[in-house]
Amino acid sequence: MSEILKAENISKSFSDKDVLKNITLTLNEGELVCLLGVSGVGKTTLFNVLSGLTKPDSGSVMLKNKDNDEWEDVTGKNGYLSYMLQKDLLLPNKYVIDNVALPLTLHKMSKKEAREEAMSHFKRFGLEGCEKKYPAQLSGGMRQRAALLRTYLCKNKVALLDEPFSALDTITRSSMQEWYLDVMEEIKLSTIFITHDIDEAILISDRIYIMKGNPAVLSDEIKINEKKPRTQDFTLTNEFLEYKKTIKEKLG
């Protein structure tokens, strides 16, 4: 597996308060990496930096170029990484299909073509029959899937997902996680995933970065060796509990 994204020595402070300190992380192609940490530790700030929305005070974000395999400096540049924020942020006035196709139409694809392309993914994302509905007519889980599909259609090699399932109820959430593990197998998107839920982190990730402290650092890195695709059954095994114990100690 080759590296596709690397962030080096990222530091960021807001009005004298240091939020991130010397954060270095890497992401391999097709890998799912979790950023695990308590709420408010600075995970979202790190995402804002990685996505280019916020400029770091120091450090750099490098992305491997799609075409020539060379490293490109994308620090502070928007549009190189697909970013899914915590809320689903679907536009209430657009049909689900047009919401999902938004990244395509924003990049000058015609509405008709964009709809066709979006449509071809509706089945896999479990959104069949919802094309001509408004977001308000969808359940929480479906809205989240629509937002995920929109993120996917941004067509960047790397996706940043900020607690995409945190607003869902427990049952919807575990079915979403299982569905997501399936989809990930198919679409092979390299992903960094924020969560504060240890179980979720162990279940879906290849690697977990533990983020803690004030200013926040990445204190530990844990590799989850269980092979994929995994199911919820994994959460009942001894290995799972071992991982959980290790992580709890490191977080604490």
Partner: peptide
């Protein structure tokens, strides 16, 4: 919603 603007910017709108 300022997050909506953030999302749009991340899509390079």
């Amino acid at each position: 919603d300022s997050d909506m603007i953030k999302l749009m910017k991340s899509m390079k709108a």
